[in-house]
């Protein structure tokens, strides 16, 4: 297989890819991350709460956490020899004031080119 150390895995929230077939299902892979902001950010956000609008600090926080959770999932996928993760889903729960858990999961697979599709 082509999958080498440090290569980017194909990740998708579709279930299949035209022109490629799943050679092997390797099972569920998942990643999670719980993060919170420091108090200063929370205070800034509570002021913003009076006037409405985007809370940029929280947007960044959740984006970073999602990147981290995805990275963990991909590490797991690589370690079991996958070259793609399909059917990815995200889930978010707020577990305390200013802290949220991000969970991401998908199916790790080994994809191969379907013979005769790229002629």
């Amino acid at each position: 297989m082509h999958t080498t150390e440090g290569s980017i895995l194909l990740i998708s929230n579709l279930e299949f890819l035209p022109g490629r077939t799943v050679n092997k299902h390797l099972g569920l892979v998942q990643g999670s991350s719980v993060r919170s902001k420091h108090v200063g950010r929370d205070i800034a956000a509570s002021f913003k709460n009076f006037f409405g609008g985007e809370l940029k600090g929280y947007t960044e926080l959740l984006a970073d956490s999602r990147d981290e959770a995805t990275e963990r999932m991909l590490e797991q996928a690589k370690s079991i020899g996958a070259n793609a993760v399909l059917n990815i889903r995200y889930s978010t729960s707020s577990i305390a004031a200013g802290a949220a858990e991000i969970f991401v999961y998908g199916t790790a697979v080994e994809l191969v080119d379907q013979p005769g599709t790229h002629e």
Binding site: N13, L17, A45, G52, G53, E54, L55, L62, R66, T70
Partner: peptide, 21 residues
């Protein structure tokens, strides 16, 4: 997915935290 030609697939996201006033 469409099968009219070959596509690469990439996961993309957009997120926003919005506060009420």
């Amino acid at each position: 997915p469409p099968e009219d030609r070959i596509y690469e697939q990439r996961l993309v996201r957009g997120e926003v935290v919005i506060s009420s006033d």
